[in-house]
Design a protein around this nucleic acid. Sequence first.
DNA 1: TTCGTGTTTCGTAAAAATGCGAATTAATAT
DNA 2: ATATTAATTCGCATTTTTACGAAACACGAA
Lengths: 97, 97
Amino acid sequence: MNKDISDTHIRLARYAKAMSHPIRVYVLDVLSSQKCCYSGDLSEYLPIAKSTLSQHLKELKESGLIQGEIEAPKIRYCLNKENWNEAQELFHQFLKR
Amino acid sequence: MNKDISDTHIRLARYAKAMSHPIRVYVLDVLSSQKCCYSGDLSEYLPIAKSTLSQHLKELKESGLIQGEIEAPKIRYCLNKENWNEAQELFHQFLKR
DNA sequence: TTCGTGTTTCGTAAAAATGCGAATTAATAT
DNA sequence: ATATTAATTCGCATTTTTACGAAACACGAA
């Protein structure tokens, strides 16, 4: 029996929290299958207000999974490879697949 | 670009939500490395009230990832293999590992 | 039936999450 | 300077989540 809540558990929970909303799963899905994407493009296909999308993108940024880069007047988003890889590894180990 | 939020996205988000708290990650970790576990045993190692643990266990039950069986006066918890396998598969595909 | 063990549910409080429209910001062009 | 485009932040309302202790429940033994 593991004796403690470890940093690994906490890290995993943090990434899971970032993925705990369908919109955010969708965004990560898009970004993992193409290099980058503009907020406006995402907004086009999602049934939510642009402001709501911004809030979800903010949560993903704060989790470390994505990052944004200003290309005026647009913002381009892409995965943060380091953290995406960490999430991949953590889930892989946790789910033993 | 994927055109819609799919059922897959929603399913994945639901499992991610179940894992979005460290206590629940810990519980799943324990259950995935041993056949089953009693609520009292879990409670012994976790720095939370028993009632809080019950609430977390309830969330895991509602997500479908675990199930409980009464062995009076105790309750034994174990993974729900079908849903655990589904979560494994969904995360595996999503994270491409 | 009562009692004891183990656990859950309830009630409460506070914090966090979610959604929207309005206001604001950031960058560039004119 | 103003105007435009693109996006974010803010304010608000509502719901959900998280944590705890008390109350209640579930079951078997006496």
